[in-house]
Design a protein around this nucleic acid. Structure first.
Length: 593
RNA sequence: GCGCCUAUAGCUCAAUUGGAUAGAGCACUUGACUUCGGAUCAAGGGGUUGUGGGUUCAAAUCCUGCUAGGCGCGCCA
């Protein structure tokens, strides 16, 4: 990358200045090369002189002058000192040579070698299989899939995984719901279980099972039938979700069964191991894990009184399942989370608690399968579990930085200015499939990607339906289609061109365009490190803008043959870059629109 | 009550993670089509970055008080 090359040259300049006695000897601190806000200030700015003021014992402008004096940029660029900034401007000749480099790299343009083949995992989606994929899942999978694409481009061997929550209470409730719908489909008047899933998706699944399997489950013992139907239901729902994901351009390497952590004995082995390390406390018939990863000693704890629960607002709940205050008025371990309890699940080998799965799962990812990084994409409702999983990773000896949990904010769904409340259980969810039908998968992905994951944003279905051509994705795709169109026309009409012409660009719109093109590998690096994929949307729009300006200013057809060739080469470099960004974002690259 | 997140132009959001004069899109006003694709381009107005302090050569960005909003906090998942 150009930025890395320049950084080396700046370091060499400082060393050279020190060797010449122009700067005192000191250890060079970490510094960065930035892009100045104003493009007339150059392509890169170095502010290291201000950092060095104290250790070099000179005023910053003088330091900058000394560094600039020893900076050997050759034909690549020129440097100028302004207010202690060293501004580096890439030369037109150098920028021109990059076009040839980009064309030579072809489809690989934009790829970098940050990961050096290291195994990385992005686990995303992972919604409970209690219904079809809802619009709430769209942000999760779009962010996750884009990050997976990015890590791949950054040189990692990427594994894409969906964690299937196929154990636990909700799944049992689902089984009952599907069974009721199955029975109803066969003509039996079977009531839905309490808190059952009322959506038409579950009804459809129940009907499908009846059509496929007939009445035979009605003749089995009730519990056995519900169990079997529940398993069939999960499978059918997952199949449906997979079809939806494919429509969004998303494929997985693996669907990881939560249940397998328990049936394989991994969860039990983990509990045993943690217990031997003194990280598990047996208390009141349950097993607790120390949340901060430090050992728990018996007797250490705090009084959880009725007053404290009332203060926390927990006792005000109308929910019948709300905690019984009398039951809480006793000592609990400090910052501990339950892992296993006969009260939750009578047979804990099947699945103790939610957290009892998190610990073996993080071990499975980071240690057994060796992913680094192991990226989680979680909704904000799981925010409280983040420190617990980090603590678990620490307790298990997994180095910092291996486990990276991203928490995104839920979108607010609007329809005609009114907020839409939805829930799978109540049966008023909005399916991704329906939104794709309305606005298309590319536009949906672009919307989901265009805001930083910390941002809560409103997503108005009506507005997007009415004004879907204002979505910037069409602007970017239009730019791509236009590059294709120009190349097609040049081919079909046989525009005269001089294929021996040198690639030297002079027009300011050409040079600005090359500058934007060259940022692609920096974007891949930025997003691979920060895991913030919204940067692509800004970049894609700016790149397309630079191309549109070039298109207005620099006519190709009917120009002298050397210019025709030169500009067509540049158009192809744009095409490669736009196509790469669109593919990284998981969007299609239309040749016509 | 405690924890996490958020507050930037009329609206929706950026700001390459601490750099120079805070930028785009939408909306509004004005201009450009015998054109390689007008789904375009050019120009204009619009800001005390919620608010008070602090750290730093440098703060929208880091720390902190306050205000407003969102989410979370069960032997639920």
């Amino acid at each position: 990358m150009v930025r890395d090359q320049l950084k080396v040259l700046v370091i060499q300049a400082i060393q050279s200045a020190q060797a010449a006695g122009d700067l005192s000897p000191f250890e060079i601190p970490a510094f960065s090369l930035d892009h100045p806000r104003q493009t007339d200030m150059g392509d890169y700015a170095v502010s290291v002189a201000m950092q060095l003021a104290r250790i070099a014992r000179l005023p910053p402008p003088q330091i900058a002058q000394q560094i600039a004096k020893h900076l050997q940029l050759g034909e690549m660029a020129s440097a100028e000192v302004v207010n202690a900034f060293i501004n580096i401007r890439l030369s037109p000749a150098f920028l021109s040579t990059k076009v040839g480099d980009i064309l030579a790299r072809g489809e690989n343009w934009g790829n970098i070698d940050l990961g050096r083949g290291q195994k990385a995992q992005v686990e995303h989606g992972s919604a409970n299989p209690t219904g079809f994929a809802t619009i709430g899942t769209a942000r999760n999978v779009t962010v996750g899939d884009t990050l997976a694409n990015t890590l791949e481009a950054a040189g990692y061997a990427v594994h894409r995984e969906w964690y299937v929550n196929d154990a636990g209470t909700q799944i049992r409730v689902l089984g009952g719901s599907v069974f009721a719908r199955y029975a109803q489909a066969s003509g039996v008047d079977e009531p839905m279980p309490e808190k059952g899933y009322l959506g038409d998706d579950v009804a459809l699944i129940g009907k499908q099972i009846f059509e496929r399997e007939g009445e035979r489950y009605l003749h089995l013992p009730r519990e056995e039938a519900v169990r079997a139907i529940g398993r069939l239901g999960i499978d059918l729902i997952m199949e449906h979700i997979k079809v939806t994901l494919v429509r969004m351009g998303i494929r997985y390497d693996n669907f990881f069964s939560e249940k397998s952590l328990h049936t394989s004995g991994q969860a039990a082995a983990m509990l045993e191991g943690l217990s031997q390390k003194g990280l598990i406390l047996e208390y009141e018939g349950a097993s607790w894990f120390s949340e901060d990863g430090s050992p728990i000693r018996s007797g250490q704890g705090r009084k959880q009184t009725a007053e404290q629960y009332a203060a926390a607002g927990l006792a005000q709940s109308d929910d019948e399942d709300a905690p019984d205050i009398d039951d809480k008025g006793k000592t609990l371990p400090v910052q501990a989370v339950v892992m296993r309890s006969a009260k939750v699940v009578p047979n804990p080998d099947e699945r103790a608690t939610y957290f009892a799965s998190d610990i073996p799962y993080v071990w499975n990812k980071a240690v057994i399968r060796g992913f680094n990084p192991a990226v989680y994409v979680w909704g904000e409702d799981h925010q409280a579990d983040v420190p617990r999983v980090y603590a678990a990773a620490k307790a298990l000896g997994i180095p910092d930085g291996v486990v990276r949990i991203l928490v995104y904010r839920f979108i607010t769904l609007m329809r005609g200015g009114e907020e839409v409340r939805m829930g799978k259980r109540k049966g008023n969810a909005i399916w991704i499939d329906d939104v794709i039908d309305e606005m298309g998968a590319d536009a949906l992905r672009y919307v989901m990607l265009s805001r930083a994951i910390d941002t809560k944003f409103a997503f108005d279905l009506n507005v997007l339906k009415e004004h879907n051509d204002t979505n910037p994705v069409f602007y970017v795709q239009y730019g791509h289609a236009r590059t294709c169109s120009i190349e097609r026309k040049a081919e079909e009409e046989g525009w005269p061109m001089d294929r021996t012409a040198s690639l030297v660009y002079e027009h300011s719109s050409e040079l600005m365009l090359i500058r934007k093109i060259m940022l692609l590998p920096e974007m891949v690096e930025l997003i691979a490190q920060s895991l913030q994929p919204h940067h692509y949307t800004t970049y894609a729009r700016e790149l397309t803008q630079a191309f549109s300006k070039f298109y207005e200013d620099c006519r190709i057809k009917d120009s002298p043959p050397d210019i025709v060739y030169r500009r067509l080469q540049l158009v192809h470099a744009v095409r490669l870059t736009l196509a790469k960004v669109l593919r990284l974002m998981g969007m299609s690259t239309p040749q016509k629109m």
